[in-house]
């Protein structure tokens, strides 16, 4: 090959390198971090779950297949605690998730009437969403405290202070109230934006068709915020299946060490040095729980999907024409 050709090849290679070099340069930090902190852990997690593993004693690693997973269905401490915690969380979620959608929706509806000062109202409702759960815990712990110094108990100064945080049902109620106060803001903002984006002409058309206020809401408002409702439902569902912060910070001496949700289980067991030989088991539990969460999300996505119509009317119309 002549020198000119070789030079051209070199130049082209340089150019390609230059072209792609920048792209690679841009993407690589992300991909690097992603691989180290997301991909590798994922693979590792799966592998660990199939072994008996102790991070502090790596030589003792042995492969034991799926027996870790089977433990979850056996009669042992782990299984019982896990399923109990899952049950408690699910029951709570059945109450909490609808609250966290309907209340923000109602507030969004109110704020869209744009009363004077609505911007301030908006900021106030959203404010709790940016503070951490521990502060929420401090606050609600003090207000709903068991002792007679707690605000609520002090107001209704009766003989026996109400054990807000000790009694199981009351405690979950306090957790519910705290959750609502804490997280209504985010959903509220998203839903209020969605409400504003409903085309006004649709409301007018429905009015002209004879729709009452309720019918306007059902036929115009709801269908047109379906997308945002789906997102809100998705986020809230995931957040509350992974319930962790609220039960951790809202407790009293009696139930401080109770495990109320699967995430708490995983967290606590991981934390304890005595259980470090059970790391394989914990990993299996985490993966199993993760799969349950994924199942829920897939169901939710499927339910919220747009349906395509069939062709029943077309057929009937043809019959009518005949």
């Amino acid at each position: 090959m002549s020198e000119a050709v070789i030079n051209r090849k070199k130049d082209r290679r340089k150019e390609i390198l230059k072209r792609y070099g920048l792209a690679i340069g841009f993407v690589s930090p992300f991909v690097l971090v992603f691989i180290i902190f997301t991909v590798i852990p994922l693979i590792m997690g799966f592998v660990i779950s199939l072994c008996k593993y102790n991070p502090y004693d790596l030589e003792s690693t042995t492969f034991i297949g799926f027996s870790n997973y089977l433990m979850l269905f056996g009669n042992n401490v782990l299984a019982r605690t896990f399923w109990q915690a899952l049950g408690k969380t699910l029951i709570f979620d059945v109450v909490a998730v609808p609250c966290l959608i309907i209340i923000p929706l109602g507030l969004a509806y109110l704020i869209n009437m744009k009363p004077p000062g609505y911007k301030i109202f908006r900021a106030i409702i959203y404010l709790p969403s940016v503070i951490s759960i521990t502060i929420v815990g401090v606050l609600f712990g003090a207000i709903f405290s068991d002792s007679e110094l707690g605000l609520i108990n002090a107001w209704f100064s009766s003989e026996n202070p109400i054990p807000f945080l000790s009694d199981p049902v009351l405690r979950w109620t306090v957790i519910l109230l705290a959750s609502i106060w804490w997280q209504t803001g985010t959903n509220f903002i998203i839903l209020s934006a969605a409400l504003r984006n409903v085309p006004k002409s649709l409301y007018e058309a429905c009015e002209m068709d004879g729709g009452s206020r309720l019918e306007l809401f059902i036929h115009v408002t709801l269908p047109n915020i379906k997308g945002s409702l789906g997102i809100v439902l998705f986020n809230t569902l995931i957040g509350y299946l992974n319930l962790y912060g609220q039960p951790t910070v809202l407790n009293s001496a009696i139930n401080r060490n109770n495990i109320e949700s699967p995430m708490m289980l995983i967290q606590q067991w991981l934390n304890s040095f005595e259980r470090s030989s059970l790391t394989g088991l914990i990993s299996a539990t985490a993966i199993f729980f993760g799969l349950i969460v994924m199942l829920f999300t897939f169901i939710e996505r499927y339910l919220m999907k747009d349906r395509k119509g069939g062709s029943k009317y077309e057929i009937q119309y043809k019959a009518y024409e005949a």
Partner: peptide, 10 residues
Amino acid sequence: AISMTPMFTM
């Protein structure tokens, strides 16, 4: 949840 354990062990 799934990646928590392995990250911790790493």
